[in-house]
Design a binder for these strands. Structure first.
Length: 501
RNA sequence: GUCCCGUUCGUCUAGUCAGGUCAGGACACCGGGUUUUCAUCCCGGCAACAGGGGUUCGAAUCCCCUACGGGACGCCA
């Protein structure tokens, strides 16, 4: 039997290093066993999935050199590789599950479900569907469906006993069925949820080994049950540890740059990033620390994974990147990388119009442009705060961070509108709002036009700079307190609308 | 709250499966050397088996309990 693994990113945001991490290990495993890795797009959430995100994820993984054998871009024997194009297959599976008594329609409204959940939490129970629609008669179901009532399909969970499965890394895992919710497998919009779609696809795409994040352990019983209901043999499961923030929580963009694009923009080279990810939770048998995917694959043994969640340490990544630049690459290669990165006519050409009026000699150019080439510019907290109140500055920075997350398009126009809006809502003049941002983004109170610069800087570096500024304020004791942050968040939601993550 | 998973230097980890070398390496940090500065490079140092109980001649390693950390509990994935 050919080993087949997969990565299944959801195209709902920036390409995440966690996706790259999973891709790397899936790939190493597949390569070791002369198998294939496929890439499948899990776009069953119609409201959040975007083509832009899908393209960004594919191109980031390619940049890293983590390539797949079958996928939406290159096709393959078991396509299509985009779940939104496989709806008929899921419909069929759901019908099969209903017929076999493993799934049932549910007509409960969101309001009722919220209420039930609220009560359960109050009573310190695990929130779980109460089985209300399980008791509907055939006639009732038919009547409701005929009347066009919206409904979902749920998975029927055994009432007693437990699900025991084998995790390749952890051994036997046992979870009581009483802990498992009657998972929705088809939503009101007719789309399947992740759980259903992924197991149907894994089966049809002949996936033999599901290697995924630890966050999925608790839903594995649902998946096993789905396999059973469909009469299919489940693949083997291996749950890898999750990458962590320095505070040990799951890696998140609030606390750490998580976008692969950030590392690209900040001047890391793909080989070093991949190598670094490979040493998170894993060591080669001979303990060498410089290695590429091929070397890793040769000796790869998933059993060597260590299970404690590794903290993503940018300092070590930088050291490793440095070693690549001076040991693995020739100077001419470094030069080529530099050119490909930002030292090219396209990029510099975009900066030039912004700097031109400020030039007396050519030598004035690079100092002005420097902050667009830097990872993080240098400045003091005093410079950042200027003549304003430190706390006000912190609030503005935080609001901008939240607002930037809502941006669909990263261009000058949207950025300009963003700051206009903040000025308006905060009842300030734009020139009162901007000084701190000049310093946070450029390291200087005098700089190139802000919005144009930000457009060139890109969302990932921009966000990191905001976070750095906020951290500087906190370190100086003049940042937002936990309480202050909560209050600000509340005010923000009133004045600017909901936040998105 | 309930359940699941985890726990070796500050961080990444080797050693655990087949109990028996001063618990090894790397990052960071500190000190020294090379270098006109800095960086690189070289040398040295600091620093860990979460706690308790068992099993054993012997436990980081096997078993149990506790603590701590993380994750899951969505018509998200």
């Amino acid at each position: 039997m050919t080993v087949r693994t997969r990565i299944a990113p959801s195209p709902t945001g920036a390409p995440h290093v966690g996706t790259a991490y999973m891709a790397l290990f899936n790939l190493a495993f597949a390569r070791k066993h002369q198998g294939q890795m496929i890439l499948r797009i899990e776009d069953t959430d119609q409201s959040r999935s975007t083509k832009e995100s899908e393209d960004a994820i594919l191109s980031s993984l390619k940049w890293l050199g983590l390539d797949w054998d079958e996928g939406p871009d290159c096709g393959g024997e078991f396509g299509p590789y985009r779940q939104s194009e496989r709806l008929e297959i899921y419909k069929e599976a759901i019908q099969k599950l209903v017929d076999a008594g493993y799934a049932y329609p549910c007509f409960c409204t969101a309001e009722r479900l919220n209420e039930v959940r609220k009560k359960q939490i109050e009573n310190k129970q695990t929130p779980r569907y109460d089985g209300h629609c399980l008791n509907l008669s055939k006639e009732e179901i038919e009547q409701k469906m005929q009347a066009g009532e919206p409904f979902v399909y749920r998975l029927k969970i055994p009432t007693e006993g437990s699900c025991v499965f084998e995790d390749e890394l952890r051994g036997e895992v046992s979870i009581d069925w009483s802990q498992i919710d009657h998972q929705i497998i088809q939503k009101t919009d007719g789309f399947p949820t992740y759980h259903l779609a992924s197991i149907v696809d894994d089966h049809h795409m002949k996936i033999t080994h599901v290697i995924r994040g630890e966050e999925w352990i608790n839903s594995t019983p649902k998946h096993i049950l789905l396999y059973e209901g469909l009469g299919w043999a489940p693949p083997s499961f291996a749950h890898l540890p999750l990458l962590r923030n320095p505070d040990k929580s799951k890696l998140s963009k609030r606390k750490n740059p998580t976008s692969i694009d950030y590392y690209k923009d900040a001047g890391f080279i793909p080989e070093a990033v991949v190598n670094y990810l490979g040493m998170m939770g894993y060591t080669l048998p001979d303990q060498r620390e410089i290695f590429d995917l091929e070397e890793m694959s040769e000796s790869f043994d998933i059993k060597r994974m260590s299970l404690g969640g590794p903290i993503f340490d940018i300092a070590k990544l930088k050291w490793l990147n440095g070693r690549y630049l001076r040991e693995k690459l020739e100077p001419k290669d470094v030069l080529n990388r530099l050119i490909k990165w930002k030292a090219n006519p396209e990029f510099l050409g975009k900066i030039l119009p912004l700097a031109l009026q400020r030039l007396e000699t050519l030598s004035d150019f690079f100092p002005l442009a420097q902050f667009l080439l830097d990872d993080i510019p240098n400045y003091t907290t005093d410079q950042l705060v200027g003549k304003q109140e430190a706390l006000e500055v912190a609030k503005l920075l935080k609001i901008a961070e939240w607002e930037m997350e809502k941006m669909l398009n990263w261009d000058r126009n949207y950025l300009s509108q963003l700051f206009q809006k903040i000025a308006e809502v905060e009842e300030l003049k734009l020139k009162q709002v901007l000084p701190a941002f000049f310093v946070a983004f450029s390291g200087n109170s005098i700089s190139l036009p802000l919005f144009d610069s930000l457009a060139l800087l890109g969302p990932d570096l921009a966000r990191t700079r905001l976070r750095t500024a906020l951290e500087k304020l906190s370190a100086a004791g003049s940042g937002l307190s936990k309480k202050g942050l909560k209050k600000l968040e509340k005010e923000y939601m009133q004045k600017y609308g909901n936040r998105i993550d």
